[in-house]
Amino acid sequence: MKRRDKMFPYLLLAPSALVILFVLIAPLLYSVYCSLYQCTYMRFTKFVGLDNFIKVLTNMDYLKAFGRTFYISAVSLVIALVLGVLFALWINKYSGITAYAIQLLVLIPWVTSQVVGTLLWKWIFSEDLGVLNYLIKQLGMAPLKVLSDPNTAVWVLIFVMTWRIIGYAMVQILAGLKSIPKSIEEAALIDGAGKWQLLRYVRLPMIKTPLLISTIILTLSNINNLTVPLSLTGGGPGTATNVITISIYRLGFESYQFGTSSALSIVLFLVTLVLSIGYVKAVKYEV
């Protein structure tokens, strides 16, 4: 009986542990193995050691793709955080059903399918038939080359990625604001703090954790985003929006080079892992 009790928690954990091991951990280890081989069409022919890593990390195309990824992710993150804080401060004034309704509304882009959201934006942005260019023409301006001009395409990609994540940032920050005890804010106001001082010295320090968690989760989500760039621009025009996930995807599923695409995936995974560790450290929990 005693022995069975001791085994019980392990029995409870076993199914989850096995699934996570089998679908998340084993594939990554297998990818490390693949990345050490020359491989086309899933045939691992020659052991090449770290050559694949050297190849991808000295290739300017991939380095540029990493650069683009970080640039696009960072710009999108900053916009989402700034607007997230502003929205949260605005909604914080309301309570009850109004605040709840606005939260639901801004979370819709986060909970709905990225394929659906992106493709429907693409329809609005369509250059000859899209409603955006129609409105621009009605205002008497020249129609935009929305997705065919490299510079605009980058901003459109940033727009759609940011549109998706603002709600997440806002909801996190709002939860932080709501958790600030009213007495602290009132005490600050009685002591003569202005609106800015209240924000700078009371509110911002108290929402550090939600800000940090949003930063980590959203950076991770942006860097790892393949669905949005793939459905919106496919990396084009030219290489303007070719982020690293597009490179991995094309290398693997269009050129069937699974050695090098595994190597690139491992590099991306390591970046992700660092962010995940940050997340584990940021989250408040007790075991």
Partner: peptide, 11 residues
């Protein structure tokens, strides 16, 4: 964000 997992899961 699962893009880093696409190739590992597939292979």
């Amino acid at each position: 964000g699962s893009a880093a997992m696409v190739v590992p899961n597939y292979t």
